[in-house]
Design a protein around this nucleic acid. Structure first.
Length: 121
DNA sequence: CTTCTGACA
DNA sequence: TGTCAGCA
């Protein structure tokens, strides 16, 4: 399929699909006309890229991860990449710490706003 | 009509 | 990231 079909089937713009390729996340064959051609598994790969990007992972990490992520993007199967797991767990810990800090910020803001409603007009 | 690359009011 | 240009 051509980029237009891959785009409509994944909901990812053609611009982004080309960007994924620039970042080394997605491969494509070229027809004699120079058009990018994708195989039937491309939609799933794009799905995985969307997931990994949503996880906030850098494209460099995603590139490596794609080598061991398979199956339906809705039910990812991670086979191999034993070393990657440690990194992902560390990333998860960073995200948890970030959430904790944001919750603290929210609490402080809530206290300030609470004081505001009770303060002078 | 569709895609390609490069560039930015 | 969208979008426009100028080709093929």
């Amino acid at each position: 399929m051509l980029i237009g079909e891959l785009s409509s089937r994944t909901g990812v713009s053609r611009r982004m699909i080309r960007y994924y390729e620039q970042q080394g996340l997605l491969e494509s064959a070229r027809g004699t006309n120079g058009y990018r051609q994708y195989d039937d598994q491309a939609p799933a790969v794009v799905g995985h890229i969307k997931n990994l990007l949503a996880a906030g992972l850098p494209t460099a990490t995603i590139a490596g991860l794609l080598q061991c992520v398979h199956g339906d993007p809705a039910r990812p199967v991670l086979s191999g990449c034993p070393g990657m797991v440690d990194g992902l767990q560390a990333e998860r810990a960073r995200v948890a710490a970030e959430i904790s800090r944001l919750n603290t910020s929210q609490e402080v803001l809530d206290i300030l706003l609470e004081a505001a409603v009770h303060g002078p007009r």
